[in-house]
Design a protein around this nucleic acid. Structure first.
Length: 702
DNA sequence: GATCACCTC
């Protein structure tokens, strides 16, 4: 052993100098393409520096003169903020000065901001106010290959804007290899028919550029016509060996555990990342590792298993980033969250189950399903790549090579498997009336569009000609909640319960992250939850929780801890509520704040006041005006049937109605998982309210 | 009688 360890006496720099990134060599080519063509597709492997460097190159090249801004969109909030912080550091300014970011509830930009990172959903919102997005000279859509709902809509909207701003707007799409040509073809579209107006000297330059950047220059030039080009930026990743099973595994969770032990006993140092589909599998696997790790030789390196999924608290998620203790190998069992959203350093081995849980909306039943589905080739490749970030790695696929070959090339984009009511409402508000003729990069199935149009019509957002109604439809589009809740909010003044519905809207947008417990505290959490329970159902219970939080829990961290409440989620509810309130006030609605439920333990909402219908009933009536399509009747066996009668629905175990009697109910959400269909956020109503508030809808049903 | 992948305005 050497006394002087060279590696230990140097501290590696946190960030690579920008000039050493592979992208630096392509600077001139990039700027040339962006100057010359309206659209540039950047194929950048991870580590190429595209997100951090391209906006800086553009700013230095003068794309922000006359006060214009460069926008870079991200599908996720964390990405928008972390990248902005990083670029501000490189530029040498404060975040919010020349470099800033903007996400919901956090606008860290100023008049000086020239490079702005934001979520693609927020940029779409900006288009409602500024339809041509005229303050931007360049819009870069990052991670477009992920094909999120917002990215897809944004691409369609940008194509439309480009026709109106052909000379002063530039679009950059960053994509994985597989989809680059699709994006270019999309923007080419009907530009195809126009004669090519390519300058001859540009062509020669193209050839020069393409030699350094693209391996099939001839095809690309032909492909892009006058609209754009594809440029390849090599990344900085290490090779990953892919290994397959010889024959299929019967139980991939068990096989994953065995594979982890094989790696641990036979392969050199390096942490392991295992992709499974959900919480249950992950908990099982973590348990199995902990049990069997005891059988390892006492002097051998030990094995530490950690779970990773979105449902964990931030604190619990942080463990995966910590270095393992001395003489210990870390193995992380994760959902798809580690495929793109969360990056863990030091992973050398990936074990891929080959499955992912995907959501799909059934337009016939109106029910969302969440099912384990084989991954796509693109997804499997992305997972494998997680092993080669710091040194060469290995990926163990728990399926055969033949199975891999039979996988779909790419995951079906969200727009083809989602409830499109919010999408269509948004498009209509952007002035896109003819949904069928809208230029989607991949069009959604007609059944999804029809179902969405029917719902929006029944809510009163669209008229007989499928035009957005005024003011109802326009206002629904502006509110950042799903259409049924937007309708409920806008009905609330006539029921005298706007303050309460604002709270309920904010609480339901949290998507069930309100209660929170560690291992072995389940019973105590359940009894804490019962303290807030209101007989009429989950919505009024949520109202109680919120009231208790703002009166007590916000000041005292102990309150949340003692009642097993998620402080972060409830704080977010406060922000959402405030934002919704601002919108309603802008519509001219007066929000009188009532403290109808300041005493959380007394159920004052059920008690009638002053002879008229009580507040609780008004709230439940109001909810019916938005959620009439989500109605069900309880059967003697405690399950529910929807109005059509065909579907058996179960109250979700997190619902009050899980173990209570009811007759008719409305619910916020319905989802089929495995072999059961669950309804969440359930509230009792009267049957005749359905006909009273949705006469046409219930006429059609008969 | 026993629980839902990941995001976002």
């Amino acid at each position: 052993m050497a006394e002087f360890d060279l590696a230990a006496s140097f501290i590696p720099s946190l960030h690579k100098p920008a000039s050493l990134l592979p992208i630096a060599r392509h600077r001139q080519s990039l700027l040339y393409l962006i100057e010359t063509y309206p659209v540039t597709i950047v194929v950048g492997q991870t580590g190429s520096g595209k997100t951090t460097q391209i906006p800086q190159y553009l700013e230095q090249a003068g794309w922000c003169s006359d006060g214009k801004v460069i926008a870079v969109t991200q599908p996720r909030r964390v990405a928008a903020t972390t990248v902005a912080i990083r670029v501000a550091e490189e530029v040498g300014c404060k975040v919010g000065a020349e470099v800033g970011y903007s996400i919901r509830f956090e606008d860290v930009t100023s008049a000086a901001t020239r490079i702005k990172f934001l979520t693609d959903g927020l940029l779409l919102r900006e288009a409602l106010v500024d339809p041509l997005l005229s303050r931007y000279s360049v819009i870069m859509v990052d991670e477009a290959h992920e094909r999120s709902l917002s990215t897809d809509i944004l691409l369609g909207v940008l194509k439309k804007i480009l026709k109106k701003r052909p000379n002063d707007l530039r679009i950059i799409i960053s994509s994985a290899t597989l989809q680059a040509e699709d994006f270019l073809n999309f923007f080419k579209g009907d530009a195809d028919a126009e004669p090519k107006v390519e300058k001859s000297d540009a062509l020669t330059l193209d050839e020069l550029i393409a030699q350094g950047s693209s391996n099939n220059q001839g095809a690309d030039a032909e492909l892009g016509g006058s609209i754009g080009r594809i440029i390849n930026l090599e990344g900085r990743t290490y090779p990953v060996d892919i290994l397959y099973l010889e024959k299929p595994a019967e139980d991939y969770v068990e096989k994953a555990v065995q594979t982890v032990f094989d790696i641990h006993t036979k392969e050199p140092d390096g942490d392991i990342l295992v992709f499974l589909t959900g919480r249950e599998e992950i908990d099982t696997a973590v348990q199995a590792i902990s049990e069997r790790a005891a059988s390892l030789h006492p002097r051998a390196q030990s094995l530490m298993a950690l779970p990773l999924y979105a449902g964990l608290s931030t604190e619990q998620q942080m463990y995966v980033f910590e270095e393992a203790p001395e003489n210990t190998r870390k193995v992380i069992f994760s959902t798809n969250i580690a495929e793109a959203s969360v990056t863990i350093d030091g992973i050398v081995y990936v074990v891929d189950s080959g499955y992912v849980k995907l959501r799909a909306f059934n337009p016939t039943t109106g029910i969302e399903t969440l099912t384990a589905t084989p991954v796509s080739k693109a997804s499997a490749t992305q997972r494998a790549g997680r092993a080669g970030r710091t040194k060469p790695g290995k990926c163990f696929r728990l399926y055969t090579e033949a199975s891999f070959q039979s996988l779909e090339e790419a995951t079906v984009p969200e727009i083809q498997r989602s409830n499109l009511a919010p999408v269509i409402l948004q498009l209509k508000a952007l002035g896109i009336d003819n949904i069928v003729r809208f230029d989607f990069i991949t069009p959604p199935p007609a059944e999804l569009v029809i179902r969405a149009l029917e719902l929006l019509y029944s809510l009163g957002a669209l008229d007989d000609y499928a035009k957005l109604t005024r003011p109802l439809g326009i206002r629904m589009a502006e509110l950042a909640v799903e259409p049924m809740m937007a309708k409920t909010l806008l009905s609330a003044p006539s029921f005298g319960c706007l303050s309460e519905i604002l709270t309920i809207a904010a609480m339901t947008s949290l998507g069930g992250n309100i209660w929170f417990h560690h291992d072995g505290e389940k019973k105590r959490m359940e009894s804490a939850r019962r303290k807030f329970a209101v007989e009429e159902g989950d919505h009024l219970t949520l109202l109680n929780v919120y009231q208790a939080f703002v009166t007590k829990g916000r000041k005292e961290a102990k309150f949340c801890h003692d009642h097993y409440l998620n402080f972060k989620a409830l704080s977010r509810a406060v922000s959402i509520r405030a934002q919704l309130k601002r919108y309603l006030e802008r519509f001219g609605m007066n929000v009188e704040e009532s403290l109808s439920s300041s005493n959380a333990n007394k159920q004052p909402l059920s008690v009638g006041g002053g002879g008229g219908p009580d507040k609780g009933e008004q709230i439940r009536r109001c909810l019916t005006t938005g959620f009439f399509a989500h109605a069900a009747k309880m059967q003697p066996d405690g399950t529910f049937r929807n109005v059509a009668g065909g579907t058996v629905l179960h109250a979700h175990p997190s619902s009050l109605m899980f173990n209570r009697k009811a007759d008719w109910v409305i619910f916020h959400e319905v989802m089929e998982t495995g072999n059961k269909t669950f309804i969440r956020d359930v509230t009792k109503i009267e049957k005749n309210w359905l006909v009273e508030y949705a006469p046409e809808f219930y006429k059609i049903q008969r």
